[in-house]
Structure formats: structure tokens, C-alpha cells
């Protein structure tokens, strides 16, 4: 297998996703589960950016180093970057919402243990 920067970064991203899933599945503290989700989120972003990377090319910004004429052969794919930009910002919004609900659940029950919330269990 040809190893490149993108491969290493992508492998690290996949490992982060797995670690995040493991943490979310095995921890029973709500805040720890949210931390694990954040890590999985970072992993997904790394995988997406790694897909857009190409060997020996530079960032999609036109300046003296990358003249307009040969931009096509010099820059990497800008679309995944725009996508990940959105994903990070929405990620913070989602995290803030999860934290607000965790805080609210703690105020109701005085615990963060997910096993103590049995109202919807049958």
C-alpha cells in the first residue's frame, strides 16, 4: 500500500471515530459521553479533510505562490474544506445543546448517571 500523508491522517481519523464510539457506548456519565461524541466529531472532520488532500499540492488560496493560470494543477480540492468548516461550527452548536440538556437533567435528578434515568425504559 502506498503510504502518504493523507493515509496516515485518515487512519488517525478512523481510530478517533472508533475511540469516540467506544467511549460513548461504555461510559455511563453523561458528560463523558458528550466528550466522546466530540472526539468522534473531530475524527470525522479529519477523515473528510484527508479525502480532499493531494500529494504535492497547496492550499486553495490564490496569491503570488499560486497564480490564477495554473491553479488547477497546484491546489487541492476546496470542497471538503468548505464542508468541514460548516461541520465544525454546527458541531459546537450541537455540543452546546447536549450540554444544556445534560445540565437540565442534572437539575431534575441530581445525577449524571445515564442508568438512573429510567422513565423511558420498559
Amino acid at each position: 500500500m502506498m503510504t502518504s500523508l493523507a493515509h496516515w491522517a485518515m487512519a488517525a481519523g478512523f481510530v478517533l471515530i472508533l475511540i469516540g464510539f467506544y467511549g460513548a457506548l461504555t461510559n455511563r456519565n453523561l458528560l463523558r459521553m458528550i466528550v466522546a461524541f466530540c472526539i468522534a466529531d473531530t475524527g470525522v472532520n479529519i477523515v473528510l479533510v484527508a479525502v480532499g488532500h493531494m500529494r504535492g499540492r497547496t492550499a486553495p488560496i490564490l496569491d503570488s505562490a499560486v497564480p490564477v493560470a495554473d491553479a488547477v494543477s497546484r491546489i487541492i480540492d476546496p470542497v471538503p474544506q468548505a464542508l468541514v468548516l460548516t461541520a465544525i461550527v454546527i458541531g459546537l452548536g450541537v455540543t452546546a445543546m447536549m450540554l444544556a440538556y445534560a445540565l437540565k437533567l442534572y437539575e431534575k435528578k441530581r445525577t449524571l448517571d445515564i442508568a438512573k434515568f429510567t422513565e423511558l425504559k420498559w
Binding site: 500523508l5 493523507a6 491522517a9 488517525a12 472532520n45 479529519i46 479533510v49 484527508a50 480532499g52 488532500h53 499540492r57 497547496t58 492550499a59 488560496i61 487541492i76 474544506q81 468541514v84 468548516l85 465544525i88 461550527v89
Partner: peptide, 13 residues
């Protein structure tokens, strides 16, 4: 890592 992968916008965010 994003900076190494030539994505400065994402790195800043």
C-alpha cells in the same frame, strides 16, 4: 494536522 493537510481555513476554525 489540518494545517499539514493544507487546509488553513479549517485549522483556524
Amino acid at each position: 494536522l489540518f494545517l499539514v493537510l493544507a487546509a488553513p481555513d479549517v485549522a483556524m476554525t
